[in-house]
Amino acid sequence: MTTNQIRVRVAEVETVAAQIRRLKLVPIGMSGLPDFSGGAHTILSIPDGERTLRNPYSLMSSPYDTSSYEVSVLKAAESRGGSAFIHDKIREGLPITISAPVNLFPVDRRARRHILIAGGIGITPFMSIMRQLEHDDVPFELHYGMRSQERGAYWRQLRETYGHRVHIYFEDQGQTIPLKTLLDGQPLGTHVYVCGPSTMIDWVLNGARDAGWPAENVHYERFSAPPPGTSFTVELARSGKTVPVGPHQSMLEALEAAGIDAPYLCRGGACGQCETRIVSCAGAIQHNDHYLSDAEKAAGDKIMICVSRVDGSTVTLDL
């Protein structure tokens, strides 16, 4: 295990919008949880029968109050178990394990102004980021799009807390984020951040490029859940072990289930920590990460075991 594990208790479970639940987590056996910076995430380890589900969630509570952490969980349409468990089975009082916070989506502290663009559950990292920007007295504005009033979380409280700096858009009322207008004319030193569905991230990246923004000022957080596929076998070149990977399991999960520790930080194909060398592969590699370059993916000698898999019989890894 490469991450520091912390024992917490689920202190509150609240349905805050259709398909979205907020969890409040309090420490067990210590007075407070580790400090963190806006945009950080934690990985919840949830026991579910024989297996342990591990999913990353952004910390949405204030970085300046670490007596508890709060996360929000959207029930995935095709849940692999984690979000369904949280929605269907989790109860207040349940002890679970979380990782120490890691920040893969920090703000650029040199920025003179921050524009935050959220879609749906992508609001969560911005909840802690806005606390931090408010604390540091830095100008920001939030543009938050959601399907409808019922399906969007926290928009009322955000409006109340941050007033005119918060702009809300309901898709079912025909409202869309006026991307072009809000990017044009921003002063030098402005940075834009986006978190939401993959299509929205692409829309903002393309929009920023078309608005003439340098790539250095555009930031996004793109976590993927490991997509399902067909069964295959992982062979470990160093230890000689063989591990089967099920259709709804990632390689990382299969290794963990077999009692093998492999490195990871984000479990979403974003950070590069689980990069593993491929010794040989009988089958087609399905790269699902956002870390390797296209050239590296094409070379086929590295794989991110948290989200990528193989369509074939066997892959041999340098582990």
Binding site: L183, D184, G185, Q186, P187, T190, G212, W213
Partner: peptide, 10 residues
């Protein structure tokens, strides 16, 4: 010039 330039400037 930079004092009043915006983000669309290269």
């Amino acid at each position: 010039v930079l004092a009043t330039a915006d983000m669309g400037t290269r």
